[in-house]
Nucleic acid binder design. Structure first.
Lengths: 230, 230
DNA sequence: GACAATCAGATTGTCGACAATCTAACAAGA
DNA sequence: TCTTGTTAGATTGTCGACAATCTGATTGTC
């Protein structure tokens, strides 16, 4: 008998598709922070009833990218500089933990996947596809969490990442075309391939990989002027 | 003018109440791991329609204590020893991070609150109220996260805590009356009041505060026999 | 003109019914 | 006996309508 592994088939509920659609719209900045989501309007646009839409929105509220006020509405979360700072500082701690956990689990498959994802970032950069660039960069950084063999860590990181992705997308959108240099992740990848775990951890903790300072400055700027949404 | 602070008034939706009810039932072990939640039955018991119940269940799925399979049902999560181990090891990292962040923010109000929560644990212990004992112990440990002034950290810790509370409740339920000694948190509280941050961090990382080893052994035992739920 | 009371419109929360899907029991055939 | 096809019942997913609540404009009063 042939030994075949099947992965679970995709969710086929409207709810799941709505979640994916909304999440993408939020994380790419199509829906602005603070913006209210009108249930009737969205349900008509998607040609679904409000029930699955509302359930989908409940999920995204728990995911932390929407916020809901009873009888008032559901809104895209507002981005404060402090949120970004909080998320980023926690992210560093998680990175360090993940590296410690996955270090001994590295194998050829890991190295291959690392290169594959690194390549994806470089290609997105070459193609000037900023949205995809953010997506691929976060996927590259997510590898250590996927490899750490700790489901709770992975889940936590994914929640964090949602927000970071949203922040970066907004930032990119604001400054338009200025795409960062091509090989910002070179050192990171090299360290993950090497033999010095402490060095890799130090890099994760200290290196500002994704123009974080600039992102923070941008967010601080936003806070000085009133947001139109909330 | 008197300077008065008002806290947000309670949510008045059925959904919010259902969430609270279900969460409590799960975290206290009233609903067993793997158990299926029948929507019709529960909605009739609670005298609500399925719509708010389903929305509430969606929230708890995202909260990580329920799991849903399309067209099959929504179930209480199954507890594996690895889950517990994963949650606990991450928890240690978060504790360490929280202590670092809140250390300089400690003030009289913090010390008072620390004592208050410690007292609550001791009282629950004296009264042999195991459920409340778990609840208060986790609240005591949560203080450092509340005080760390990092909303993302706090949120993450609360998610983690939900599961730990569930695990401990199951454990307590299984071994019935054996209540641990009264002052297991004495050292922890003392260190948080002291001047040696590193020592407090070390304690958080190394000290098995809540009979964790025993909990793990219990979970491993569960896995050897088939669970009735899933 | 300032302020409170009222009201209409819009939006969210909830309900009951129907459609889609799954499960388990049973029958038919190799 | 094992496998496959069928079917009935139960359960989840989705829908359209109604109830509860909020918001902003309007009216009336001082």
């Amino acid at each position: 008998m042939v030994k075949t592994e099947f992965s679970p088939i995709a969710d086929t509920t409207r709810r799941a598709e709505i979640v994916a659609l909304l999440r993408r719209a939020i994380l790419t900045g199509q829906l602005e922070p603070g913006q209210k989501l009108n249930e009737l309007r969205i349900s008509e646009q998607m040609r679904v009833s409000r029930a699955p839409l509302r359930e989908a929105m409940r999920e995204l509220v728990q995911e932390g990218i929407l916020t809901s006020i009873p009888y008032a509405g559901t809104f895209v979360i507002n981005v404060t500089a402090k949120d970004i700072d909080d998320a980023y500082s926690l992210n560093k701690v998680l990175d360090e933990f993940a590296i410690e956990r996955m270090w001994k689990l590295r194998d050829q498959r890991f190295l291959d996947e690392l290169d594959r994802r690194h390549e994806a970032v470089k290609q997105a950069t070459r193609e000037r596809d900023t949205t995809r660039q953010i997506e691929t960069a976060l996927q590259l950084h997510g590898l250590i969490h996927e490899w750490a063999d700790n489901s709770v860590l992975l889940e936590t990181w994914q929640r964090l990442t949602s927000r970071l992705q949203m922040y970066f997308a907004l930032h990119q959108q604001a400054r338009k075309e200025a795409v960062p240099a091509e090989d910002v992740h070179e050192t990171y990848v090299a360290l993950l391939k090497g033999h010095d775990m402490r060095a890799a951890q130090r890099h994760a903790r200290e290196h500002i990989d994704l123009d974080f300072e600039e992102l923070l400055a941008y967010a601080r700027g936003l806070e000085r002027r009133p947001s139109k949404g909330a």
